[in-house]
Design a protein around this nucleic acid. Structure first.
Lengths: 218, 218
DNA sequence: ATCTGATATCACCAGATGGTGACATTGGCA
DNA sequence: TGCCAATGTCACCATCTGGTGATATCAGAT
């Protein structure tokens, strides 16, 4: 994979080197997606941003699809690193809770991941599939690497709960970026703290063992 | 407001009647938004769909912004009716739960509401603001009309909980429309039933009185 | 030094967009 | 009747898009 955090796109310092040109194009596509979203992400804009001719996108990647596939390949472990390493959780509930909090953090602070998440839920275009795939692979790998022998308690529909809460986190991160608020809740730091405690409360009450819930007054 | 469910856009049967022409344009904009989303929603496409010249959009509405504002005005109670009338709930938890289920139903079966919800969370463009406003007004009006004297139990962060679950429902409805699945959960009827029970479980455990949770084994 | 192939750039195409001015048609009023 | 304003239509503009062919330029092998 190429370095995702390097080198300004200076076309003058790029004398007929295919590798560097390809890198500049991948970087331009990635940056443009992170900044402006999937709208307005086209051949012309990417080539302009990279400082070279759009013809090279066709020559080297076979078109926009190929470019996005290459970007997806670059992204696979980049996303994984955005989730941050962590020690082994003590329980399945802890695993899910920390996954949700880390996901929220990644989505909030990395516009690229947020735009990909938004894109794949808005537009079923084939362009986004390599990116969505990379994102999904990175996330499930992160979970699998940490869950060990931990399993959800029986009688709880863990997939439904996780889908619900992941969807909520993604949507709220998108809403923060576009509106700064959602459903009467201001999405600043205090707002997100309230959401975090609510998330952990729900997870603990649904997945935690009875002792840790603290919800039973008897 | 104009009738939202009438009259084919036959331009031959519309002889120099400004009112009907405006209605045809509003209907075209609304239908196009519901079918194709906010991407590709432009002056040309709307005029083509309405069967008249785009010049009339400028003359009658002052541009696309004015048209969308008019569409928003049309939409206000249309959305409210999509939430369906209902008898008074027995508790605050019941109110929230039924609101969430009805919202999910409306989002799943009405592409227009879904597209507006998606649009306002993706794109902070001024075009969407009248539509978002109409949506928000209709929803809060629905809740206010039904809550009566019901209030959330003390010590519970109801705004955070509601924002979380509304965000989840919106995101899952969008994901169903674009991908049919989300986070390992297939979003068909059985999948949504699982989500519904999970939603009501969460709401009851967070907002319900202790007797109704059933989570306490003592 | 020369020739070849890879690299990069340019010019152009058809189609679409948002936007504007000029023109034709019609209905109603004096 | 004739006139005028409202309504509708058409033609055009600049600009952008994705896409393609031809051409210039350079690096390296012979």
């Amino acid at each position: 994979m190429t370095d995702l955090t390097a080198a300004p796109p200076d076309p003058s310092s790029r004398p007929r080197n295919r590798g560097e040109t390809e890198g500049a194009l991948r970087r331009a596509a990635r940056d443009l997606l992170a900044e402006s979203g999937f709208q307005g992400l086209g051949i012309n804009a990417i080539a302009r941003r990279a400082g070279c001719d759009k013809q090279l996108i066709y020559r080297y990647f076979g078109g926009l699809d190929g470019l996005m596939a290459a970007v997806g390949a670059d992204l696979a472990d980049w996303i994984g690193s955005a989730l941050d390493p962590e020690t082994a959780p003590a329980s399945y509930a802890d695993l899910v809770a920390s996954m949700l909090l880390r996901l929220a953090d990644a989505l909030r602070h990395d516009p690229l991941i947020r735009q990909i998440a938004a894109w794949e839920v808005i537009d079923p275009s084939p362009l986004v599939q390599p990116l969505a795939r990379a994102r999904s692979v990175a996330l499930t790998a992160w979970v699998k690497a940490r869950r060990g022998t931990l399993r959800p308690p029986p009688g709880v529909d863990a997939p439904a709960l996780i889908a619900l809460l992941v969807a909520a986190v993604q949507h709220l991160a998108m809403a923060e970026a576009s509106m700064g608020r959602f459903s009467g809740l201001t999405l600043d730091e205090p707002g997100w703290r309230r959401l975090q405690t609510m998330l952990t409360r729900i997870v603990q009450q649904q997945l935690g063992d009875a002792q840790s819930t603290g919800g039973c007054p008897s």
